[in-house]
């Protein structure tokens, strides 16, 4: 399965970015047999967008055909778009490497409602 993680950097050692829509990078991680098979980095071109960043970011990760998203905070629009696309959203924080391990072990909690209003990610 494929998972997109909002990231502060380009490595598995990077931290999970608090924001979904306005994180600088997404790590697209491929998991097979409970192990990281490989990963790639995509730049989040929505990060500096005036409005609707969450939606553009959702479109970006959906086009990577991911099955799930891991982030800390997600706005109502991005939440709605990902849910409509059948992509599951999980909450994680800290080093991406250990967050993925937790995800594989089924220890991450699912986000079932938007974590904040629109534009909250804008000025963080």
């Amino acid at each position: 399965m494929k998972v997109a993680i909002s990231s502060t950097g380009k490595e598995l050692e990077s931290e999970v970015d608090v924001r979904f829509g306005r994180c600088p990078y997404f790590l697209i991680v491929e998991i097979e047999n409970k192990e990281v098979k490989n990963f790639k980095v995509i730049e989040n071109r929505a990060a500096m967008q005036f409005g609707g960043a969450g939606m553009t970011a959702a479109q970006l990760v959906a086009n990577e055909k991911v099955d799930a998203v891991i982030t800390r905070a997600i706005g109502p629009r991005a939440f709605s778009v990902l849910t409509q696309l059948g992509i599951e959203i999980y909450q994680g924080s800290g080093k991406i490497k250990s967050v993925i391990e937790k995800f594989i072990d089924g220890k991450l909690e699912k986000i079932t409602a938007p974590t904040g209003p629109m534009f909250t990610g804008k000025n963080i």
Binding site: G52, Q59, A62, N63, R77, V81, L85
Partner: peptide, 24 residues
């Protein structure tokens, strides 16, 4: 439709129907 939308009010993912976000 998503490509021409300057307000990012339409999300398009290959193989899916476009998703419309009315408030944008």
């Amino acid at each position: 439709c998503a490509k021409v939308c300057r307000e990012n009010a339409i999300v398009f993912v290959k193989g899916r129907y476009p998703i419309f976000v009315p408030d944008l």
